[in-house]
Design a protein around this nucleic acid. Structure first.
Lengths: 147, 147
DNA sequence: GTATCTGCAAATTCTTTGCAATGTC
DNA sequence: GACATTGCAAAGAATTTGCAGATAC
């Protein structure tokens, strides 16, 4: 399973005349073992103690390559950090973000695609992807704030 | 017109036990004279040569207050900078962002609100606001890339 | 008068980059 | 063996913060 993605990455690198290094392999393996989103620093931390030491700079550089090769997706959820997630068994989804505890909840609502196409047709824009974030109060924080 | 917003800001500051300073006034006046979005640095630059010199730190601090008082809206459109826009005569809208020239186009599609409510009801989330960005190719860049 | 504000420069946070040593094909 | 890649530490970009003097109420 992960091997398929490794192969895809290898192919991508080849078409770009880049090399499949052990650092890149270690990063890819780690990413596909994570089944939620993560940021660059999470990844650096999780790679410590693994079979290969990887520097922060290399993590950033490799994340860019993985985004370009469509093996991972990049989001700007909060203010500062970018977060990432791999595409394995993950169809497109959007996010609810709790303003009180910062928890994020994924949701999937295919109708948004129709909506996107309708808007874009009107405005003669060719959509490639979208990002919908709904900010509000999650179930847990609703309970917490009740008397 | 701008005076109304000045009054609202003054009231907001009062409820928070904060002061209506000449710097805050100058920033607010300048913002309401801009009819498109801007970032913190744009604002610092535009304030140079105005009736009041205002430092970058104060601009950042005042932008936060204006967001809290609902007189301006903050967006994270690109990667790094936050951009802002005032609410005067501006109902809620979302953005198309061209991946080729970075131009942003505003659009307004009230149906998105229904959509938001439907999703949130299912997930027991109380929505407060949302941000929808559609990335793709604008009309101009479509023409440019044709032979 | 007193507590908030301001400007400055230094600190922070996340990310990118230059360079010499290293590794891949 | 050539050229991409790595790690490091330094640079960069946007934003925040600590502090001493200035200002609003």
């Amino acid at each position: 399973m992960v091997e398929d993605f490794k192969e895809k990455f290898r192919e991508f690198l080849e078409t770009e005349d880049l090399k499949f290094t052990s650092e890149r392999e270690a990063i890819l393996e780690k990413i596909f073992s994570i089944h939620y989103h993560f940021d660059a620093d999470d990844l650096v931390f999780m790679l410590r103690g693994g079979k290969k030491r990887v520097s922060k700079a290399t993590v950033y550089r490799t994340l860019d390559l993985l985004v370009k090769s469509n093996l991972i997706i990049e989001h700007q959820l909060g203010d500062k950090k970018k977060i990432y997630e791999h595409v394995l068994g993950h169809s497109h989804h959007d996010h609810l973000i709790c303003l009180y505890c910062s928890k994020t909840i994924e949701f999937d609502e295919p109708m948004i695609e129709d909506f996107q196409d309708r808007v874009c047709e009107k405005l003669k824009f060719i959509p490639e992807r979208h990002s919908l974030k709904i900010f509000g109060k999650c179930q847990f924080c609703q309970k917490k704030s009740k008397p």
